[in-house]
Write a protein that binds this DNA or RNA. Structure first.
Lengths: 194, 194
DNA sequence: CAAATCATCACTAGTTTTAGTGATAAATAC
DNA sequence: GTATTTATCACTAAAACTAGTGATGATTTG
């Protein structure tokens, strides 16, 4: 039964989950090619190289890059964007996707969603409080427990600059404690548990 | 290098994740057999039938059945219990496990955890420098971002006491930054989203 | 029972962070 | 082509944390 080849990219930090999706979906009778990436940049690279039709996305990976993501969406308007939901808590960016599935969904349902992969155009919702690139870097170091001074040394900046970034991060996120920022950093996937 | 066959049960609602773990781990040179179950009852059934050595568990599936779970653990004392963590906000029954991995962890790390669990009796240094009850409470508050002073107020203690606990926690864990302690707190499951 | 650990409190001195305000050049956006 | 955002640097005062040392009573453990 079969159509032209479908190229599917999975943007997802967990190799386990990628492998699981691959194993589950590629069993179907359709003709899919799978690619695994774990950053927006990698995604862009592959979008240029390959003729991708479907992108499965873990929303946490675009949490701070909504603008870039929307840009990419506009640029590749034919692509269907499908969100991979870990659990019920992450409600935030779901509006950006054409469709969603949960990891706990039945495999046949997920397969159906992917094969369908049709429907509406996504609506944009701007999050004007996203962290800048520099702020992300500083946050990463903060969450590793480095002091302002050490971060300054590492980045060849003055402590004042780090201080400013730190303040801006706190203002943007509304999180006023280092502990909270650390958890935030881990939760959006910019540092790992180790 | 190859030992006897290891029978691994994965207690996990998501087929995707089971498939992912299976695909990732069964590539290693060890000799594994995998079984997928998605309820405690099914787990018990298979424990009776097969000689299981390792159980990978999604903690959410035992959340309301801790007692039953502990009973099973006692009954099958040779088994290594490994938690599968979706995100940091998962509910914290994590202390029940011999080891944990996050879905976003590197596959080689996960494989290592599992192979370790096969070979060693106890991979965890649980008893080395265990925190006291009081220290756990203080750590919990610290990881929520509360200052010494506020914690002191909450617990009706002096700031000095909190300070002492804090120092002792740092000495015991060897972690000297608040960010590190926060991650530690999350990783051992003593704080959650609230 | 004796030894070890725990929970509590105290003081000091030095370091770091927080919370303001303010500024400038460069890049981006509308 | 102006307005906004970003990245950078600066200063200050107050608050908080770090790293020592030391002590006492209670509880647990062998």
């Amino acid at each position: 039964m079969d159509k032209c080849r479908q190229n599917i990219v999975v943007l997802e930090p967990s190799k386990i989950i990628y492998e699981g999706i691959y194993a589950s979906i590629s069993k179907s009778e359709y003709n899919y090619s799978f690619y695994h990436v774990d950053s927006l940049i990698e995604l862009e690279t592959i979008l240029i190289k390959k003729d991708i039709t479907i992108v499965l996305i873990n929303p946490s990976l675009i949490q701070n890059k909504i603008k870039e993501f929307i840009k990419i969406q506009k640029q590749y308007s034919k692509i269907r964007w499908i969100g991979i939901i870990y659990s019920l808590f992450d409600n935030s960016t779901t509006k950006l996707f054409d469709n969603l599935f949960m990891l706990t969904d039945d495999v046949t349902r997920i397969a159906k969603i992917i094969t369908k992969a049709c429907s509406k155009i996504s609506t944009l919702d701007k999050n004007d409080e996203q962290l800048s690139e520099r702020e992300i870097i500083v946050l990463k170091h903060l969450a590793k427990g480095l002091s302002n001074k050490i971060i300054a040394d590492k980045l060849n900046l003055s402590v004042h600059t780090i201080n400013t970034h730190r303040k801006n991060i706190m203002d943007k996120t509304g999180i006023r404690s280092l502990a909270g920022l650390t958890i935030y950093a881990v939760s959006i996937g910019i540092i790992s548990l180790d």
